[in-house]
Amino acid sequence: MDRPTAAAVLRSSDADRHTHAAAYLRSLLAGCLGTAPDQVALDQPLEAQGFDSVTIAGISVIIEEDLGVRVPIAELAASGLGELARLLAADVRTSEREAGEVGADAPVDRSR
């Protein structure tokens, strides 16, 4: 599954959210590394996988563009990707949630 599709799935469904968030992250990181999604490890933080600060900053921007969630770079660098998938599963608004929320146009800012 490519990244836009994985993002759309995560944003559209309230079921299996952690699985969808993990699939999205695999797809995103695979795109950064030029590798296949199933070769992306989710058990290690980005900095342990050798991602440099510029790439991590870029990943933060992509996540915000795709999912409307701002993940601070320091948190993105040091968190295990499994943990990050849980955060995204909790924070990404789905179309069902947006329908019932006020101010749903604003991005979710994890930096606050």
Partner: peptide, 17 residues
């Protein structure tokens, strides 16, 4: 460090955009 990281994606064999 930045160069090494960039080369990782440049040299990647998997097709990407």
């Amino acid at each position: 460090n930045l160069i090494a990281s960039a080369l990782r994606s440049v040299a990647a064999p998997h097709a990407q955009d």
